[in-house]
Every structure is written in structure tokens, then in C-alpha cells.
């Protein structure tokens, strides 16, 4: 009769397993044991497993100092019967005892996500993406420079940019390490780079839309797509983290994405000053090729512009209403004074 003895870590992951075919299996720190456990709290001869004739598994405590416990850490009697799949503790260490015919979980099929993950982990893909994003970064800096362009001046921004980029895969790697999952550094990096490229595209298209059709339309377009991209990126990162696909992942991604967008919105709102002496408008000018708007006639422009006078006056009226209470108090104070001076 064969038994499987698995040693588990605190989060329940198997860290070692033994398959032993013996009537009596001894566990302890001494080298004469069938299963040698190197832990100071385990006695040289701590416990033994016996398989009775009828096939019953029986755990015997060999007068150990730190005892044996069930999976709820309740002390067990000196002799206890076990079923296949039961977990026990020897001192602080967790074990699980299984028969060979114990059922195993269904096989997880390799998903499309896994294929994608494999693909984007390829060194060539990572390299291509990195070159693309750095190229775009340098191009952006070049198109913004209004003085003679020198590559030297890009050194610091590029290094900082790379360091910031590496934060994301490093974060996931550390998290995976901590939870003893597969690390997948390159896949996380690729995931970030692809998301950034898509963001850039959204921004570019959004800028052109906003230039030609007004900021409002563009803002809705950009916000919706950015939300979607962030959601997908987070969900995929979570998949890379534990390689499982479930509802919890979708829920988590949804919560995180919403939290990020909520924080950003609040940030904009908090920063928005109540009063500014400077006008707020879009100063964006794009090259003539990207202008599709035909322009309106002067008279139409002036007619439409009249609206701002009403808008400004409305703000003024709203504030006067708010301060009326204060004004009344002031007037009363004044009247009091007139009376007293008489």
C-alpha cells in the first residue's frame, strides 16, 4: 500500500512530497526516519503513520514534545485515524496525507491568454516594443523642441523614463515572488508597453478630434477608451500573476480601474481653483494638414460669442445670491450705528 505525504507551506502550497510504500512510515528529525524533517521543533522520532490491514490510515504520536494537531490546530490523541486528503500539523509544520487513488483537480487547458503571454514574453517582442516606445518618446521630444535639437539633452529624461517604466514589472515580480507564483517579468513589461502605445494612439486621435470638433467630444472619447485599456491591462496583469481566469479577476480589475479614474477625477476637481485671473481655453494648434474645419464666417462667430456675456453675468448673479446673507448682516450693522450716533 502506498501513501503520499505532502509538506505544505503556510499558504497551503506543496513544497515537498514523498511517495512511500511501507506498512509503517516514520516521521522525525533523526536520519533513521523514512521522512526526515529538518526543523528544531520536531522530535528525532516525532510520529508514525501505520496502514492497518483493512486499509485504515492511523497516525501515532511517538511521545513528541510539541505534539500533533488536526488542520484546525486542535491537539490530536496519541492514536488517530486519518482519511485520504486530511491535513495535520507536526509541531508547526503542515502536512497532508493522501492515498494514491485520491482524485486530482481537472486539467486547466492552455488558454488564448497563455498563448498571448508566451508571445509577448519573447525577447524579440519585448525588444521591438521597447524600441518603439523609446523611439516615440524621442520623436515627441524632438517635435516639441524649439531650439537646436541635441541628443545629449535627452539623456536624463530617457533614463528617468526607463526607470519609471521598469517600476511596473518590478512591482508584479515582487508580488509574484511573495506569493510564490511564476514571476513573468518580461510579460508584465510587454503588457505595460503595449498599453502605453495604445494610450499614445488614443491621445493622438483624441487631440485631432478635440482640435477639429471641440474638447467635449474628444474628452468623452478619450476617457472611455482609456478606461477600457486600463481595465484590459489590469486584468491581463492579474492573469499573468496567478494564471487563472475567474470572476474575481474581472471584479478586481473593475474596482482598481474605477478607483484610478475616480482618484484622477477628484484630483482634477481638487486642483481646480475657484477663481483664476487667467482665462481657461484650449491653446492647441496643430499643423495645417490636421485641420479639417472649414471655419465659420465672422458674423456667425461674433453672434455665437455673445453667449459668454450671459455666462459671465450668470456666474456673477449666482455669487451675489450666495453672499446676500452676509450683505444683510452688514446693512443691519450700519443701521445700528446710525441709530447709536443719533
Amino acid at each position: 500500500m502506498e501513501l503520499i505525504i505532502q509538506q505544505l507551506n503556510s499558504s497551503g502550497k506543496v513544497i515537498a512530497q514523498h511517495k512511500i510504500s511501507k506498512q509503517k512510515i516514520t516521521l522525525g528529525r533523526a536520519y533513521s526516519n523514512d521522512i526526515i524533517i529538518d526543523d528544531p521543533h520536531i522530535c528525532p522520532h516525532h510520529a508514525q503513520l501505520e496502514i492497518e490491514d483493512n486499509g485504515q490510515i492511523c497516525l501515532v504520536d511517538c511521545n513528541s514534545i510539541n505534539g500533533i494537531f488536526n488542520q484546525n490546530k486542535k491537539p490530536l490523541a496519541a492514536v488517530t485515524n486519518l482519511n485520504s486528503g486530511d491535513s495535520i500539523y507536526l509541531a508547526k509544520l503542515k502536512f497532508r496525507i493522501l492515498r494514491v487513488d485520491h482524485p486530482v483537480a481537472d486539467t486547466v487547458a492552455l488558454t488564448q491568454s497563455e498563448k498571448t503571454a508566451e508571445f509577448i514574453s519573447k525577447k524579440s517582442v519585448v525588444l521591438l516594443l521597447s524600441v518603439l516606445i523609446l523611439g516615440l518618446f524621442i520623436l515627441g521630444e524632438f517635435l516639441k523642441s524649439l531650439t537646436e535639437f541635441s541628443a545629449k539633452s535627452l539623456y536624463t529624461p530617457i533614463i528617468s523614463f526607463i526607470i519609471v517604466l521598469l517600476m511596473w514589472p518590478l512591482f508584479w515580480s515582487l508580488l509574484s515572488r511573495f506569493f510564490k507564483h511564476e514571476v513573468r517579468f518580461w510579460a508584465h513589461l510587454s503588457c505595460l508597453l503595449i498599453s502605453l502605445l495604445v494610450f499614445k494612439l488614443i491621445l493622438f486621435v483624441g487631440t485631432i478630434v478635440s482640435y477639429n470638433f471641440g474638447t467635449q467630444t474628444a474628452l468623452i472619447f478619450q476617457a472611455t477608451l482609456s478606461y477600457l485599456v486600463t481595465f484590459i491591462c489590469l486584468k491581463f496583469s492579474l492573469y499573468l500573476f496567478n494564471q487563472r481566469k475567474n470572476k474575481r479577476q474581472v471584479k478586481l480589475s473593475f474596482i482598481f480601474t474605477s478607483a484610478i479614474f475616480a482618484l484622477l477625477t477628484i484630483g482634477v476637481y481638487v486642483k481646480k481653483a475657484e477663481f483664476s485671473a487667467l482665462p481657461k481655453y484650449s491653446g492647441l494648434i496643430l499643423p495645417p494638414v490636421l485641420l479639417w474645419h472649414q471655419g465659420i464666417e465672422k458674423d456667425d462667430y461674433i453672434k455665437s460669442a455673445q453667449q459668454v456675456f450671459q455666462d459671465a453675468q450668470q456666474e456673477s448673479v449666482k455669487e451675489t445670491d450666495k453672499s446676500t446673507e452676509h450683505g444683510d448682516a452688514l446693512e443691519e450693522a450700519l443701521q445700528d450705528e446710525t441709530v447709536s450716533s443719533q
Partner: peptide, 24 residues
Amino acid sequence: TNFHCYQDFSKDLSAHIHKSTFCV
């Protein structure tokens, strides 16, 4: 109050298009 702005592309007499902002 704060400035309130109106912005659009306007055409001048020579058919050039200007991005024009008017704030009050």
C-alpha cells in the same frame, strides 16, 4: 468673475482660417 470663453475657427476676408478665442 472667472473668464468665460468661446472658441471656434473663423474665416477672414482672405479665406484664411484662424483659431479664435473670445473671453469675458
